[in-house]
Each structure stands twice: as structure tokens, then as C-alpha cells.
Amino acid sequence: MYSRAYKTLVSAPPLIWVALFLLLPYGLMFAHSFWTVQDGVLVHDWNLSNYQKLLTNSLYAEVLFRTMRIAASVMLCSLLLGYPLAYYLSFHSGARKELLYQLVIVPLWVSYLVRGYAWKTILGSEGILNGFLQYFHFTHEPVSFLLYSPFAVVLMLTHIYTPFVFLPIYASLEHIPRPLVEASEDLGASPASTFFRVILPLSMPGLLAGATFAFVLSLGDFLAPLLVGGSSGTMIANIVQTLFGATYDWPLGAAISVSILLITLTLLFLTERLEKRWSFE
């Protein structure tokens, strides 16, 4: 029912905009990863030397491995916190459901930076947690390993991504028709087997979406390490940031970025396949 002119009019501007301001920049990033820098000048000779460097220099592999470990920990922790919360809200919270739901949403709107900063004030050696421990005489010396460690990064990112993980899980739990649960119980399944045989499989798409989200966003984070990570908490995106800043080796930075992008897209692709397998509609 829409004329050709209408369709052209609505599709041309966003197509042009996206091509110019998204496709072209991402393309530039890709192109840079094949160039090199000599004496502080960008040289446009196409080669794979940056990727070679990534594969041969063990520093990058080490940091990338640590980054994956941190991202996986964040994913696991947010699932462990987010799933039971979503399950409780969806199935057992009764009349307070809507209120509790909104309570989960509110922190989503609170600045990432502000929340990270709050953790810094809590975990520091002069921080609130140490003050608390000493006030109640749990310790007499400040505990210094809390801040500036991979642990602090995982804690902060888990805090930030738990509500993000909660949302898709809650949505998929809410979509489960309640008669299915009753049918399972009617057929003699205990609450536990109802959960593992009916509810968990049917909430898989939400669980996968939340898990991917937490993993992917943690993978590319460079602010949490700067805020609370210290040198032992450095992640791959921090290296990119240094290469673009102080070191001024954009091509190598671009090559790492492209690697992060490829890992991310692969994961998203796999999740999409898995989600399709787990959706029964």
C-alpha cells in the first residue's frame, strides 16, 4: 500500500547516514588494521604484520586470555545473581511483582561511571569496607587486595550487568504460559523437576541473550580496569586505548579492535543459532 516514492523517501536518508557514519568508520578501522606506522607516520602498505604481532607476542595473548576469564566470570556471576532474582519475581513475588521489577530497573538508569566510582570508594584501602571491618574489629590492618585487582573488576562489572542479564531472563520467564507449569505438576513432577524440565528449557533464549550481553560488553570494557582494576586488572581494551593514545600505533590498535569485533560477532552469531534451537514457537 506504500508507493515507491514513499519507500525511497524513508529508506534513503537512514541508508546514506548509516553508510557514511557507521559503515565507513568501521571500514576504516578494518583498513587501518592492515597498515603500519613507521617513524610516527601512517604507511598505507597492506600487510598482515599487525596480526602477526598479535599472534607472536605472548603479552597480547596473556591479556586477551585474562580478559576472557574476567568476562566469563562476570557472565557467570551475573547469571547466578540475575536468574534466581528473575525466577523469584516471575513466579513467587505475588502482588509486589511490579514494584520489585521497577526496583531492578532503576539502577540501570544510574550512571555507569557513578556506580564504578562508588565501588572505588567502598573497596579502597582507606575505603568504606575497610573502615567497616576495622570499626567492628574484624581486622586491624587495612585489607589492600580488594581494590586494583581482577576481583574488583569482576565485582564492578557484575554489579553493572546483573540488571541487564535479569531483563531478558525475566521477559522469557514471563512468556512461559502458566498452565504448562500446572500441567507438569499435575503429571506428578516435583517443583524441582518442573523447574529443570519445563521452566529452565523454556527460558533458555532469555538466558542466552543475557549471558551473551554480559560477556560481550565486559570483553570490550576499558573503564572498569582504569577505575578499579590496577595493573593486574588490565584488559585487552586498555591496550587498544594505550595504542591509540600514548603509544600512537593506530594500526596495531585497530588490529586488536578488529579481533575483539570478530570474537563479538562470532559469539552473537552462535547465540542466535542457539536461541533459535531453544525457541519452540
Binding site: 557507521l22 565507513l24 568508520p25 578501522m29 585497530a254 579492535s257 569485533l261 563479538t264
Partner: peptide, 17 residues
């Protein structure tokens, strides 16, 4: 993409542009 990619990638791409 900008919604699901880490911000650093979108930010750096735009910087290059």
C-alpha cells in the same frame, strides 16, 4: 551494531573517520 559492540570500537572507528 553500536548497541551490541563495545563502545571503544564504535568510538575509535568514529575517531578515525
Amino acid at each position: 551494531l553500536p548497541l551490541i559492540l563495545p563502545g571503544i570500537i564504535t568510538g575509535l572507528s568514529l575517531l578515525m573517520f
